[in-house]
Each structure stands twice: as C-alpha cells, then as structure tokens.
Amino acid sequence: GTEDLKEEAKKALKKGDKERAKRALKKAGLSEDQIKKFIKEVL
C-alpha cells in the first residue's frame, strides 16, 4: 500500500538512493511537488 511505499522511500533515502525513493513515491501516487517535499522532509 501507500504507507509501505513511503517506508520504502524513506529507507532508500537514508541509503542515499534518491532514484529508488522517487520510483516508490510515484507508485504511491504522489505528484512531483509532493515527492520533492517528501524528500526534503526526510533528508
């Protein structure tokens, strides 16, 4: 589900894998702006 994808994105970001995080967030249905915001909040 969406929460799982967001968790996956957080883990990817902590490993420095932004591309993987972006893919997971796109799958979760987030827009580009939401993805940028999510990444900023996590990092």
Rank of each mutant, 00 (worst) to 15 (best):
K26F: 05
L13K: 01
K10E: 07
I39Y: 05
I35R: 01
K37E: 15
L43I: 09
A12Y: 12
F38P: 02
S31Q: 04
K6M: 15
G16C: 09
K10H: 06
G1Q: 12
Q34P: 00
K37H: 12
F38R: 03
V42H: 11
K18M: 15
L30Y: 10
L13D: 01
G16T: 01
K10G: 03
E32F: 06
A9Y: 03
E7K: 09
K26P: 00
K22G: 05
D33Y: 05
A12R: 03
K10R: 15
K11A: 13
V42C: 10
K40P: 04
K26V: 13
K26Q: 14
K18V: 15
K36Q: 13
K18W: 15
S31A: 05
A12F: 11
I39S: 01
V42W: 15
K10P: 00
E32L: 07
L5W: 14
A28K: 02
Q34F: 05
V42N: 09
K6H: 10
E32V: 09
R23E: 15
A28F: 05
L25N: 00
K22I: 15
A24K: 06
G1C: 14
L43N: 05
R20K: 11
Q34V: 04
D33E: 13
L5H: 07
A24D: 06
I35M: 06
I35L: 05
K10D: 03
K10T: 08
I35K: 01
L30I: 02
K26T: 11
E32G: 06
A24E: 07
A9T: 02
E7A: 11
V42T: 09
L5Y: 11
L5A: 08
S31H: 04
A21T: 02
K36C: 12
E19A: 10
G16S: 02
K40Y: 15
E19Y: 05
A21F: 03
K11E: 14
F38Y: 06
K22L: 15
G29F: 02
V42F: 15
A28W: 03
K36Y: 09
K18E: 13
K26C: 06
L30H: 01
T2H: 12
A12N: 04
K36E: 15
G1K: 13
R23P: 00
A9M: 03
K37L: 08
K37A: 15
K18H: 15
L25Y: 00
A12P: 01
E8Y: 10
L43Q: 07
G29Y: 01
G29W: 01
D33I: 08
A24S: 06
L5F: 10
K10N: 04
A21I: 04
D33F: 04
A12C: 08
K14Y: 11
D33M: 07
E32D: 13
E41N: 10
K40R: 10
Q34N: 05
A28I: 08
L13I: 10
D33S: 10
R20D: 08
K40V: 11
L25D: 00
K27A: 13
K26R: 15
K26S: 10
K14N: 09
L13Y: 03
K6W: 15
R23D: 14
I39D: 02
D33K: 09
E19Q: 08
Q34M: 09
D17H: 06
I35T: 04
E8K: 07
R20Y: 10
L30S: 00
D4A: 14
R20N: 10
D17R: 03
E32S: 08
K10L: 12
E19P: 06
D4C: 13
K22S: 08
K14M: 14
L25W: 00
K40D: 15
E7P: 01
L25P: 00
I39C: 05
K22H: 12
I35W: 02
E19L: 08
K18G: 10
K36G: 08
Q34I: 03
E7G: 06
L30A: 01
L25R: 00
K22W: 12
K36A: 13
Q34D: 14
K15V: 14
A21K: 00
G16H: 05
I35Q: 03
K37C: 09
F38Q: 03
Q34R: 03
E3K: 10
L5E: 04
K22D: 06
A21Y: 01
R20A: 15
L43M: 12
L25S: 00
K40A: 15
K15G: 11
I39A: 02
D4N: 10
E41T: 09
R23A: 14
D17N: 07
G16F: 05
K10V: 12
V42L: 10
K37T: 09
L25F: 01
D17G: 02
K37M: 10
A12H: 11
K14I: 14
